[in-house]
Computed example of a mutant assay.
Amino acid sequence: MSEANNEQTGGKEFYLPELLFGYVESMLAGRTPAVQARILPFEEFISDPLHRPGFAGLHTTFMFHTRSTNLEKPLYYCVVDYPIMNASVTSFSNFYCIVVYSGLYQQTYSIMAGLLSDRSLRKFLLTGEEAVDDGSYPRLSRREAYVDLRETGAERADKPALDLTYLLSQLTVIIVTCHELGHIFGGHLQHSLTKNHMSEDAVQVDAQGIRRALEIDADVFGSLASALLMCNIKPYPRWSDLPLDLDMALRFLFVSCYATYSIMDLFGPVDPLVTRKVHPAPLLRIYIVGLIVSNALPVIIPASEREAIWDQASSSVRAVELALLATAGGSMMPEEALQYESAGSQLWDEHLGRWSTIKSSLDRKRLDVFPWSPVLP
């Protein structure tokens, strides 16, 4: 049985053993505010159709990126039955655990389905043909449009849209899981400022942006790790049905990233460029994805070209915005796009300005198991 086929019949090897649930539950209970939710037993998680995109994303990521990493202690994941878009990773004394909240993929599903009810977005994903902008002016704000899709998106979607929604929801989980792996392999959990637990906490004044730098570094790792997985995902269930080449794989990656970060933005502060949290504003993170993948992937895959990858990223953002306009009447205004582009460039310049000093204080040897790690900043 191939590893890809094993995704449908196995997978328990990566799931947190029930005898360890108490350690993770105690950690969750200590958070402020405490998360009053339960860890799903593996059999319940695997048997519920609502969790299938989550399982597919987590299992595929673990199969591809962790089977041969030889960490000093076991690495597991678990899913908490709680409707928030979040995930975290914690280092316990004898194991690592990535905790994913079911809302990560359940909150995105209806919105993704609504966006994919737009045939032009589906055609872009599958063929690369770009949608035509008819010059329509938005009748709703971008946020209002996403709220509308959250309520009505699943009703709008036909079977072709729902089939692609499954894949994009799976990709959401892959992207976030690769980010959490970046904390482990980047040496972040051994750093004194992380307290062995990474999550969406407020930045402390005396941290001088160090924790945000660690989050950006995890985004850097996650961007390239997700891209490389996508370039090799063809043998896995449901992906094998697509004529998947490099360009299509990158379109799926960038569309899923942009839609995911847009949905995260919906659940965040009204100010889209707020920086009160450890993570950068969600819509600035797509800038990092495009920058890293377009610069690093050509070094690893010579057949790819920087300019072509950057164009794929830009076209994917445009395709999602046009789909939002067509389905729900909202879209990003040109002046907003310029603000994001400027803020993303500034964020990256600030990161590079302090990263060499922070990087020198981290234990980065776990990255050595990835032959592509030397291209990371």
Rank of each mutant, 00 (worst) to 15 (best):
residue 177 T to M: 03
residue 6 N to A: 15
residue 112 M to Q: 09
residue 236 Y to N: 01
residue 375 V to M: 02
residue 67 R to P: 00
residue 26 S to E: 12
residue 56 A to K: 07
residue 16 L to S: 14
residue 288 I to W: 01
residue 116 L to C: 03
residue 325 L to Y: 03
residue 74 P to T: 15
residue 255 V to G: 01
residue 63 M to T: 15
residue 294 S to F: 04
residue 234 K to S: 12
residue 297 L to P: 13
residue 324 L to G: 02
residue 128 G to D: 03
residue 345 S to P: 00
residue 216 I to V: 12
residue 85 M to A: 14
residue 20 L to Y: 15
residue 23 Y to R: 11
residue 178 C to L: 07
residue 366 R to I: 07
residue 307 E to H: 11
residue 223 S to H: 08
residue 147 V to L: 05
residue 242 L to E: 15
residue 200 E to A: 03
residue 200 E to R: 03
residue 44 E to S: 05
residue 313 A to F: 14
residue 327 T to D: 01
residue 159 K to Y: 14
residue 139 R to G: 03
residue 128 G to N: 01
residue 252 F to R: 09
residue 236 Y to M: 00
residue 29 A to M: 08
residue 330 G to R: 05
residue 49 P to M: 03
residue 364 R to E: 12
residue 287 Y to D: 08
residue 99 V to P: 00
residue 224 L to T: 11
residue 124 F to P: 00
residue 322 L to T: 10
residue 265 D to H: 05
residue 9 T to Y: 06
residue 223 S to P: 12
residue 170 Q to Y: 03
residue 110 S to N: 07
residue 116 L to N: 08
residue 339 Q to Y: 10
residue 253 L to K: 07
residue 365 K to W: 11
residue 240 S to M: 08
residue 197 H to Q: 13
residue 295 N to K: 14
residue 188 H to Y: 10
residue 155 E to W: 00
residue 201 D to W: 11
residue 361 S to E: 14
residue 55 F to I: 05
residue 61 T to P: 01
residue 302 P to C: 10
residue 260 T to P: 00
residue 285 R to G: 04
residue 99 V to G: 06
residue 210 I to A: 07
residue 170 Q to K: 14
residue 129 E to C: 05
residue 85 M to N: 11
residue 22 G to D: 07
residue 111 I to L: 11
residue 152 T to V: 07
residue 305 E to I: 01
residue 334 P to G: 10
residue 71 L to Q: 13
residue 287 Y to C: 06
residue 239 W to V: 05
residue 177 T to G: 04
residue 271 D to F: 05
residue 337 A to N: 06
residue 209 G to P: 04
residue 119 R to T: 11
residue 41 P to R: 04
residue 362 L to D: 08
residue 183 H to Q: 05
residue 342 S to L: 10
residue 88 S to P: 09
residue 63 M to H: 14
residue 212 R to N: 10
residue 370 F to N: 09
residue 31 R to D: 15
residue 370 F to R: 09
residue 78 C to N: 07
residue 85 M to T: 13
residue 24 V to K: 06
residue 251 R to I: 12
residue 66 T to W: 06
residue 92 F to N: 12
residue 70 N to F: 14
residue 269 P to F: 03
residue 278 V to R: 11
residue 144 E to L: 08
residue 359 K to D: 02
residue 325 L to A: 13
residue 57 G to N: 13
residue 10 G to D: 13
residue 247 D to W: 11
residue 100 V to S: 02
residue 303 A to W: 08
residue 157 A to D: 15
residue 25 E to C: 01
residue 68 S to P: 02
residue 61 T to K: 01
residue 16 L to K: 13
residue 167 L to D: 15
residue 377 P to G: 13
residue 22 G to K: 11
residue 224 L to R: 08
residue 196 N to K: 14
residue 78 C to T: 14
residue 138 P to T: 14
residue 225 A to Q: 09
residue 222 G to D: 15
residue 237 P to S: 02
